[in-house]
Simulated scan of single mutants.
Amino acid sequence: MYETRFIARGNCFMSNIRDIAKEAGVSVTTVSRVINNHPYVKEEKRNKVMQAMKTLNYIPNHLAVNLSRGKSRVIAVVFPWITNPYYLRILEGAIKQASLHQYHIIVIETHYKEDEEIKALEMLKHRSIDGIIFITKQLPIDVIYDYEKYGPIVLMEKNDHLPYIFINQYAAMKKALNHLMSEGYKKIGYTVHRNNGFSANERAKAYATLPEDMQYKEFIYVSGLSLTEGKQLAQKILKQMNLPDALIVTNDAHCAGLYAEFQNRGIKVPEDIALISYENGELSQVNNITSIDLPLAQMGERSVELILSDSATSEELTSKLIIRKST
């Protein structure tokens, strides 16, 4: 028998189920069964317990109830920066789906620090959470594998062991490259945030399919994700002797920064340089930027479904190129 704690509305003290049992004139076991929606409780006694809770102005601490059942009903979503709209759209989908199943989402912001990712995995080990969704990660995959025995883990990159939900980044990059080549662009570059990440590797593979005379190592930029960092990258690019005539950019915010700085410097888009962004959020729509539409909210929804599924089936989502005035 566990003891469920109660929190008093408008009071500063806590009590336990014995207070409710005394007020209702029933046993502690009966109160516990009512709280846990046990079917074998007479309606008369159930009503007495509910009335006692109302009279004493108490509400049950459902977290304690869930933990006593071996479930926290909490899923952790792990990603580097909470300020990035790209990640927030995935998070929005995860929250929506979790709420449908009466689960809660907590966010763990890591800044790509391995020790922060380990802390999240340790929460799973100690049953503080029921599952983890890694939007992106820094830890070696083998380290994450070691924690699978403690609960479900979903990745947003393809792998051979854990359930995953991912967007085919190779195919997305090919769509962008093919569009630019069809428009006559020959000096194509692209940006990545980490040159050793899963998405960066897939984009590099796609870029390597270009004819050799169209591959420019100096046009592959390891840069940030923010609008400000996009402006800074534009300034760096314009100092080069040899300039790209088209860029495929990591996300909308970074692309918006590039676009704004190019305009400030008198560089015309798309006449002087074409731009394509990943994401297709509000910034690309407002600025009329050609964008690779990524089903980010759907990724969040499906990742929660994988966490809660008894027979998780990994899934690949597709992207769509939305052509606007920047190309």
Rank of each mutant, 00 (worst) to 15 (best):
R69E: 15
S72K: 11
R73S: 11
R73A: 13
V74L: 15
V74M: 15
A76G: 08
F79T: 15
I82L: 03
T83E: 05
N84K: 09
L91Q: 12
E92A: 12
A94I: 08
I95Q: 14
K96R: 12
S99K: 09
H101N: 13
H101T: 09
Q102L: 11
Y103R: 05
I105P: 06
I105R: 13
V107G: 12
T110W: 07
Y112F: 12
K113Q: 14
K113N: 11
E116I: 02
E117T: 11
I118P: 03
A120V: 08
E122G: 06
M123L: 15
I129E: 01
I132Q: 05
I133M: 13
T136Q: 08
T136P: 00
Q138N: 09
Q138E: 12
Q138C: 07
I141T: 11
I144G: 10
Y145I: 04
D146N: 10
D146E: 11
D146T: 11
D146W: 00
E148I: 00
K149F: 01
G151Y: 02
P152D: 07
P152Y: 06
P152V: 13
V154K: 09
L155Y: 03
L155T: 13
M156W: 00
N159Q: 03
D160E: 10
F166P: 00
F166L: 10
I167V: 14
Q169A: 14
Y170S: 01
A171H: 05
A171I: 04
K175T: 08
K175I: 06
A176P: 02
L177T: 08
N178W: 01
N178A: 02
H179C: 04
E183S: 09
Y185E: 04
K186Y: 05
I188M: 04
I188Y: 03
T191F: 04
N195P: 06
A200H: 01
N201Y: 01
A204T: 13
